[in-house]
Design a protein around this nucleic acid. Structure first.
Length: 579
RNA sequence: CAGGGCGUAGUUCAGUUGGUAGAAUGCUAGGUUCGGGACUUAGAGGUCGGGAGUUCAAGUCUCCCCGCCCUGACCA
């Protein structure tokens, strides 16, 4: 491809709405353009990368015994109502109506659709297991789309679904997919981790996330150097070991705390250690309120709480609701005297054993001091709902955990029988009995991968694509197109490489050399052949994107050395090693 | 959705007490250059996000919409 023919508008300045390096470089390099919040056009360069990722994923899926199909994006509401997720997913879904006022959604995921697809036709144990996938556009009306392609509202995803007679068969496929995902990440040349994760709204039991390591990643991971334990922050557990000194219980007392709403403020105002305050957060769910209690210096893990309560619709109660239902602003809620049918109290393990602590008094501008468990209120259940942080004890070996950041590229789930049961998807076993499938599902963020790769592989000048994903492998930078000698040499090399089937880009623009170098770096082409003044002496230059050194190559031998060096570079180039 | 911020040339941004719409960069044409966004001359490009209002006069003041960005318990 000639640069003069290519549609790749590059931009010198960072776009005003740039919030992340990958978004900035992808826009500046002419890979993508934003159309609306979280909705993008893939320009030719972006589309080439997208196709390469798609192809890698497709090949690995096929190798893992998975078959490709294509399901509709527009899905009727009724299948979502049947599975009970019309409400669970709720506002996340892009909803629309046809001319007859029938409700549809633009699929945020396809569990329902695939189940409906196989429901009446995949009926015998003899046909199992089956593993089906598609690569398709998905829609999720995120609370706040951001970070460019990392959190888009319209995005491309590979999703696979497997159907089994029993758990053992599911386990086998799960492991195959797990390995396929490792293979995909290796082919993309990325540093990654597979970690235990929370299953969220998708539900199910076992699940692993495949996370690539990146400083700006949205996911926080907790890892143990000693034993190798790894988990996402939502899922991470720890060895809870709280010992509090035995204290004499003191009489509970109400104190005035005007406008002191946060733990921080109360701690200062009452001159009490945060560890002697119990934080009370009120959540509203399907079956009423949940009051969650945790020690003042710790944070609640919302995902753990949701999982524990078994209600994915759980949300932090609105201040207005709290005021009308409990008669207090949210800063002053607490467990004392809260004997209401519609309120369940969940206590974090950190609260158990505390004595004489501070809680909200359930009325404006007042807290209780010297509150005590049992004597002053009852907890309905104890559970670990704490957000695990760096330094907490590893749940396996008790050594302190580390925290790193990353970007989730894919996730594998064992769904079990959740969807097959709710949608009545059964098969007939050897004995003629109707049984619900055991299912697995396996997602991969195709469009997100583009941004993920850039997040991990970039420097101050632009992107460093690995060979497997680069939109072109080689760029020929022609310094002066008006110089016949140079121009001729560049054309010859370009045609030769094209004949050899190389993916080569010829920068034949009449810009100044500097702007061509900048663009080549920004776009991130791995191998650069510079054709300039050296041509007089039958020399061109070879420079790799991850290297600061250039090498002179003699071309008087009919380009043999050049071809050899290019071949070698293609085989050994690794953008993770910068020099 | 809540709280905060911003919408002016393709892009990044200036625009004073209300008084003829600006720069840089990019683009077009010419000239000089040709190894890290080079220099120079000329030119095109804007119903100032949309609507209503106040005023002799609105980019600037008021109100209502719309869009985008940031913070928030979202997730491939």
């Amino acid at each position: 491809m000639r640069f003069t023919k290519l549609y790749a508008p590059t931009i010198k300045e960072a776009p005003a709405d740039s919030d992340l390096i990958s978004y900035e470089y992808l826009v500046r390099g002419g890979f993508i353009r934003k159309v609306a919040a979280g909705i993008f056009t893939y320009l030719p360069l972006g589309n080439r990368v997208l196709q390469k990722i798609t192809q890698i994923v497709r090949e690995e899926m096929d190798n893992a015994g998975c078959q490709e199909l294509l399901m509709p994006i527009a899905q009727p509401a009724n299948i979502w109502k049947e599975s009970g997720r019309w409400d669970d997913y709720g506002p996340e879904m892009m909803k629309l109506q046809d001319r007859h006022n029938r409700a549809f959604t633009l699929g945020p995921t396809h569990e329902e659709m695939i189940t409906v697809t196989v429901k009446n036709e995949l009926v015998s144990y003899k046909e199992l297991p089956k593993n089906l996938y598609q690569i398709n556009t998905k829609y999720r009306d995120e609370i706040r789309p951001r970070f460019g392609l990392l959190r888009a509202r319209e995005f491309i995803m590979k999703d696979a679904y497997s159907f089994h007679t029993d758990e053992a068969s599911l386990d086998e496929t799960y492991n195959q997919m797990y390995k396929a995902y490792e293979k995909i990440l290796e082919r993309m040349g990325l540093d990654y981790m597979a970690v235990e994760a929370d299953s969220g709204a998708i539900g199910g039991s076992d699940t692993h996330e495949f996370v690539i390591l990146a400083e700006n990643g949205e996911s926080s991971l907790l890892t143990c150097k000693t034993c190798g334990y790894k988990a996402t922050d939502e899922r991470a557990e720890y060895k809870a070991d709280y010992h509090y000194p035995q204290e004499q219980m003191i009489e509970r007392q109400e104190v005035s705390t005007p406008d002191q709403k946060t733990i921080e403020q109360i701690s200062e105002y009452l001159n009490v250690d945060k560890k002697k305050i119990v934080k009370s957060l009120l959540f509203k769910g399907r079956e009423g309120y949940i009051l969650a209690l945790i020690r003042g210096d710790l944070e609640i893990n919302f995902a753990k709480l949701k999982a524990h309560v078994g209600d994915q619709t759980l949300e932090l109660a609105q201040p207005e609701d709290v005021l009308t239902d409990f008669g207090t602003p949210i800063g002053f809620i607490g467990p004392v005297g809260l004997n209401r049918e519609d309120v369940k109290i969940v206590g974090d393990l950190s609260v158990r054993g505390l004595t004489n602590f501070v809680t909200g008094a359930m009325k404006q501008d007042a807290h209780f001091i010297h509150t005590n468990l049992e004597r002053d209120f009852q907890v309905d259940g104890w559970h670990d709902i704490k957000m695990v942080t760096k330094g907490d004890a590893c749940p396996v070996c008790s050594n302190p955990l580390d925290e790193t950041r990353g970007i989730e590229m894919g996730q594998v789930f064992k769904l079990g029988q959740k969807y097959s049961k709710s949608l009545g998807a059964n098969f007939t076993d050897e004995s003629g009995q109707q049984l619900p499938f055991h299912m697995g599902c396996y997602g991969w963020g195709i469009s997100r991968s583009i941004a993920g790769v850039v997040e991990q592989l970039h420097d101050e000048n632009g992107i460093l694509w690995p060979i497997s994903l680069a939109p072109y492998h080689i760029i020929i930078t022609l310094i002066n197109p008006k110089n016949e000698e140079q121009s001729e040499a560049a054309e010859t090399i370009y045609n030769l490489l094209k004949e050899k089937g190389e993916e080569v880009l010829l920068d034949d623009r009449e810009n100044s050399p500097g702007s061509k170098f900048k663009d080549a770096d920004l776009i991130g082409i791995p191998i650069r052949v510079t054709v300039g003044r050296g041509v007089k002496k039958s020399k061109v230059e070879l420079k790799l994107r991850n290297d600061t050194q250039k090498r002179e190559i003699d071309i008087s031998d009919g380009f043999e050395e050049l071809l050899k060096e290019i071949k070698k570079a293609k085989e050994t180039y690794d953008p993770r090693n910068t020099k």
